[in-house]
Design a protein around this nucleic acid. Sequence first.
DNA 1: CGGATAGTTGAGTTATCTCAAATGCAGTGG
DNA 2: CCACTGCATTTGAGATAACTCAACTATCCG
Lengths: 239, 239
Amino acid sequence: MSNEPGTFTACGACAAKRLNLCAGMRHKPSALPATSSARTLVQSITARRVICGPREWSEFVHVICSGWAMVSTAMADGRRQTLAFLLPGEIDSTASLFQPRFGRTIEAITEVFYRRFRREEMRDTVLSSPDLLRTLGELWSAERAQADDLAIDLGRRTADERIARLILDLGKRLALHGMVQEQTMDFPLRQRQIADATGLTAVHVSRVLNEFQRNALIRIGGRKLTILDYDQLRRLAEA
Amino acid sequence: MSNEPGTFTACGACAAKRLNLCAGMRHKPSALPATSSARTLVQSITARRVICGPREWSEFVHVICSGWAMVSTAMADGRRQTLAFLLPGEIDSTASLFQPRFGRTIEAITEVFYRRFRREEMRDTVLSSPDLLRTLGELWSAERAQADDLAIDLGRRTADERIARLILDLGKRLALHGMVQEQTMDFPLRQRQIADATGLTAVHVSRVLNEFQRNALIRIGGRKLTILDYDQLRRLAEA
DNA sequence: CGGATAGTTGAGTTATCTCAAATGCAGTGG
DNA sequence: CCACTGCATTTGAGATAACTCAACTATCCG
């Protein structure tokens, strides 16, 4: 539940573990060539700082060790859309193994510890191992499914549904790492950030969240979120 | 501009050409093993029929030879979201090389000629060639960018913007194959289908399209669309 | 303690939806 | 060749989810 670098818990389902990138996360050594070790030291960055800018031709793939980050785009007139939140163990995108993701910003939400892998090296390593390659394909399929789900949320679901789904999705992903206890999880998101991710405004997010709390579906406070009525929330989410 | 099977024109940018899948499209032989040829005959299907259902554990990757298809999901209560239109030369998803895409339906919009490649064989072929592998990575990156763009459209753009962008996007992709002449292209989409793709209702699509025509941005008729004022449309689209 | 950022709340607006009826158009069968 | 049926589109009127603006309050951090 903490953001300390050492407390990351890899699980069988997470990208980092599955691509063998856990070196420095108190796990098996990385599958990357020894020569790359110096370049893949754990980086750290404070909340709200940019990890990778939209016009940066980054030669790195980013893997989150601890903390929360987000990937988003900003339009010229100020509209923003967040494409994904990145939780511990997650890679910014499998696509970034092949090309940088132009026009997208990766930002730290909390303090973040992350590793940077040189794209070329990581790609060569992954592509030269049949096992890793199969894993990559699976991660990629999951990522595609997630992208599709986002489109369905934004295109066809109501505000209530979107927010309920976001909460459940984050809860599920955090639970993979044992980061949910007694239905309670860290929840560092500002309402503005929830709004950016769900295609809503912060004002409306505030209303929906309070409505949820009035109905005893969730409780938020002190940067923590507790799911009080999981079934109800789920019913809302999968309508 | 026609839907006949023989008239497909591969271009350097399309998935089929780049992954060497053009056999049977009057192009170079496929890179697939000879043994697979019998299984990759061109299939044909009439408009509105399902190419691959949402619960089907398809062992195939689909590549469109001619005609238009679409990938969409339906929710229990009837809401639908289209995730992509598939034009000649396009693959259903690079992710489908690894896993079937559950919950998504691929449907023919017009009469469609397409090829099915056995996932396993195609994957092995692609993964065992460094060239094809690099190409695959590029296609995947492009697909990821397109998925992101869809999320931005649905989350943050107005109806006018979404529709203008859809038209320009389709025009651009058709132009790759020389399927746009004098700013005019085949346009077999029903307003309902445009609505499903843009997260709007058919009624609202009708109003926007008529507004566009009243402003002399486009002309639609006889299943053709002409872009009359490209600059204006573009300005609308990239706001 | 003070300033900045985040969240709440109310009131009024609007883009888009819903419903419903009217029209157009294409294919079918007699 | 026409009447019929079923879809697609248009149009109007009214409803509503979500937005905007603005003021107020709470919370955090130095």
